[in-house]
C-alpha cells in the first residue's frame, strides 16, 4: 500500500501547461518550473491588497462558472475556494458527492459530462482517490480548467502554494531556510506537495520528522532529510510545519496511542526551543490539539495558522485567474 501511495497519480505534468508555458490545470506541484511558482506567489501578493478594500471583489472572472466538485468532505478548502471564486466575481456551484466504492470510473465521467453540459469553466476537485483530478483533467472540454483540491494521499497543490506564500511573506529567501515537516507524512498529500514545492524553490534543507511507521518507504528520494527524533529534527529550523494526525490511523496499528504520539512528536513550547528563535509554526488544519500540537503553541505568537487560512484565499484567487485568463 505504501509504495502504491507514492506512485499513484503522478502523470506527465506537461498536461498542466499550455504550449506557451502558461498554467492550464493545477494538479500537482511536481514538475512545475520555479518561475511559475514564483509567479503564483507574486500574483497572490496583489490579491492580498484586494482583501484590504471596502469592496473585497474584482470583476476578473465575471460571467465564469466555477464548480466545487467535492467527493470528500472539506470545510476550509471548500470555503476558501468558494470565497476566492466569489471575490473574483465568478458564479460558484458547490456539489458534494458522498464517496462510495462505486463513485469511480464511469460514474465519475458521467457526473463530469452532466456538469460540463451546464457550461462551466472550471472544476475544483477533491477526491479520496489519488489521480482523480488528473483523470478529470484528461476528459474535460478544452476550455475547462481543473484544480486539484486534494486527491487521496497524492497531492494538494493549492495548500502547498499557500504554505509557500506564507513562508515567503515571513522569511523571504527560500535558499537560506531550514524547514521541518512533522508528522504523518505517509498519508499526507499536503506533505508531498510541500516537499516538491520547497525543493523546486531551492530551500536549503527540507526535513521530515516522524516515526518510521508514518514515513513512505523511499521518502529520501523526495529530497528530504529524515529524522525520527523530534528534538534533533527541530534543531535550528526556521519553519515548523505540523501535519494533522488522522485519527483513523490509530486504529490501523501504525501508532500506539494519541497520548504516546504527543509525548514523542507533539509540538510543545518546550520542544520549540530547539528551533530558531524566530521560527514560525504552521499547520494546514484542522489541528488536533493535544495530539500533534499543544494548544498554547497553536495559539501562540509564533503560530501563523490563521494567516495560512487568509493567504489561502489570495493564493486560490491567483491560481484561478491565471488558469482562466490563459484558457483560450
Amino acid at each position: 500500500m505504501t509504495e502504491q501511495h507514492l506512485q499513484a497519480g503522478p502523470l506527465p505534468s506537461g498536461m498542466q501547461l499550455h504550449d506557451d508555458g502558461r498554467l492550464r490545470h493545477l494538479l500537482t506541484i511536481e514538475g512545475l518550473p520555479r518561475e511559475l511558482l514564483v509567479e503564483i506567489m507574486d500574483t497572490a501578493e496583489s490579491f492580498v491588497s484586494v482583501q484590504a478594500k471596502t469592496v473585497k471583489k474584482v470583476p476578473l472572472l465575471r460571467g465564469k462558472t466555477i464548480v466545487n466538485l467535492f467527493f470528500e468532505p472539506s470545510t476550509r478548502t471548500r470555503t476558501t475556494f468558494e470565497l476566492a471564486a466569489k471575490r473574483l466575481s465568478a458564479d460558484v456551484l458547490n456539489i458534494n458527492i458522498a464517496t462510495s466504492a462505486t463513485t469511480k470510473g464511469e460514474s465519475l465521467l458521467d457526473t463530469l459530462r452532466n456538469i460540463e453540459a451546464m457550461f462551466c469553466d472550471m472544476f475544483i476537485v477533491r477526491h479520496a482517490d489519488s489521480g482523480a483530478a488528473h483523470f478529470i483533467a484528461r476528459h474535460v472540454a478544452p476550455h475547462v480548467s481543473v484544480l486539484n483540491a486534494g486527491d487521496g494521499s497524492h497531492a494538494h497543490p493549492t495548500q502547498a502554494m499557500l504554505d509557500m506564500f506564507t513562508i515567503r511573506r515571513h522569511k523571504g529567501d527560500f535558499t537560506r531556510l531550514k524547514v521541518a515537516i512533522v508528522g504523518d507524512v505517509l498519508h499526507s498529500r499536503v506533505a508531498r506537495s510541500q516537499i516538491h514545492a520547497l525543493n523546486i524553490l531551492n530551500t536549503a534543507e527540507v526535513r521530515v520528522i516522524a516515526p518510521r511507521t508514518l514515513l513512505p518507504a523511499d521518502v529520501e528520494k523526495l529530497g528530504v532529510h529524515v529524522f525520527n527524533d523530534m528534538d534533533e529534527g527541530l534543531h535550528d529550523v526556521d519553519v515548523v510545519i505540523m501535519l494533522r494526525l488522522q485519527k483513523e490511523r490509530m486504529q490501523s496499528a501504525l501508532l500506539p496511542s494519541a497520548h504516546e504520539y504527543f509525548q514523542l512528536y507533539g509540538l510543545t513550547n518546550e520542544r520549540l526551543k530547539a528551533a530558531r528563535e524566530d521560527a514560525i509554526v504552521m499547520h494546514p488544519g484542522p489541528a488536533n490539539r493535544g495530539v500533534e500540537i499543544a494548544s498554547d503553541v497553536a495559539d501562540g505568537s509564533r503560530s501563523v495558522i490563521l494567516e495560512q487560512v487568509s493567504n489561502g484565499i489570495a493564493i486560490r484567487m491567483a491560481i484561478m485567474s491565471m488558469v482562466t485568463g490563459a484558457a483560450q
Binding site: 502558461r22 509567479e39 507574486d42 500574483t43 501578493e45 496583489s46 492580498v48 491588497s49 484586494v50 474584482v58 470583476p59 476578473l60 485567474s321 491565471m322 482562466t324 485568463g325 490563459a326
Partner: peptide, 19 residues
Amino acid sequence: SFYRDDFSHIGLHPQVKPS
C-alpha cells in the same frame, strides 16, 4: 490589471503589482 476589459482575450498580466 484585475479590472481590465481585455482579460478574457489576453489573460492576466504576468507582472501585476499590488494596489
